[in-house]
């Protein structure tokens, strides 16, 4: 590892806030991107089941 301690890794010689902010925003955006269609799929399957039950009159 390049950094000797965790504190140094976090500080990054003063560039820490910039680097970690950039990575934090990226992480949050990627999680949101992948979570959104997964949640949508669950909701959609539930609705589709209801839709099929109605149209089939069962």
């Amino acid at each position: 590892m390049y950094f000797e301690t965790v504190a140094e890794l976090l500080a990054m010689d003063g560039h820490g806030p910039y680097v970690w902010a950039a990575y934090g925003i990226t992480f949050a955006t990627l999680v949101w991107l992948v979570a959104q269609p997964l949640v949508a799929k669950r909701r959609q399957l539930r609705e589709l089941r209801g839709f099929l039950r109605r149209t089939e009159g069962a």
Binding site: M12, H15, G16, V19, A22, Y23
Partner: peptide
């Protein structure tokens, strides 16, 4: 030149 900021 840029130090650690380049990691972005």
């Amino acid at each position: 030149k840029q130090g650690n900021s380049f990691r972005i």
